[in-house]
Nucleic acid binder design. Structure first.
Length: 210
DNA sequence: GCGACAG
DNA sequence: ATCTTGTCGC
């Protein structure tokens, strides 16, 4: 897969993204996805499913893989997607929502990792990134405060203060969810700055690197 | 030409 | 992503 082919693939799949929420969507189980890297090209993809109300871990899976594709901003999904899909396939508890470590629509072609994963497995998904792909005014200092994340004149996501006084996270729609709901779901997963889904999949993957 | 650029 | 100690604050 060349970078040119990867871009073409994004543009082919982009029209499949759905930015509305099914009125009947009930989020009980949320899966967090993350990938950890070794010094060489080895990697570990981890998926952890939490009960959205209690935040207890109810399922998890790890997959050892290799980084085929280089890290290229805008083509991030092509590096992590194959292993993430493998990890998702190993889950026993089917998630109602996916939380990805990266952008959704807040992407140069409006098709970040969260959109890509969501479309491929046809499940609601949101992207939660630690750094923005776009401009934003600082949200209020209180937990839950938000501001628009803007790229190329479009609102592509939101800066969300998940904890008072800490740097916000950047939430964008992945698939089959709207931005308001995406922010609400992310906020309820947050005890610390990052959602528990991200923290647990990150630590699980890291632990399996050895 | 220069800066920006998820993890 | 990863390399990495102490330190400030609740």
């Amino acid at each position: 897969m060349t970078p040119e082919e990867a871009v073409a693939e994004q543009e082919r799949l982009r029209p499949r993204v759905v930015t509305t929420t099914d009125p009947d969507l009930v989020v009980r189980h949320v899966a967090g996805l993350d990938v950890s890297y070794a010094d060489d090209d080895r990697l570990v993809a981890a998926a952890v499913v939490l009960d959205a109300d209690s935040l207890e871990t109810v399922d998890s899976a790890v997959v050892h893989g290799r980084a085929d594709f280089p890290y290229v901003p805008g083509l991030f999904a092509f590096r992590e997607l194959p292993s993430l899909l493998d990890a998702l396939a190993k889950l026993t508890v089917p998630p109602d929502l996916l939380v990805c470590d990266g952008q959704g629509l807040a992407h140069p072609r409006r098709f970040g990792l969260a959109c890509h994963v969501g479309v491929l497995i046809d499940l609601p998904s949101v992207g939660v990134a630690k750094t923005p792909m776009g401009r934003f005014d600082p949200p209020g200092e209180e937990r839950g405060a938000v501001s628009d994340l803007v790229d190329d004149g479009e609102v592509v996501g939101r800066a969300l203060r998940t904890r008072a006084g800490v740097k916000p996270v950047f939430v964008s729609v992945g698939h089959r969810i709207d931005l308001d709901r995406a922010c609400a779901e992310v906020l309820r997963l947050c005890v610390h700055r990052l959602p528990e889904t991200t923290r647990r999949s990150d630590s699980l993957g890291r632990a399996h690197l050895r």
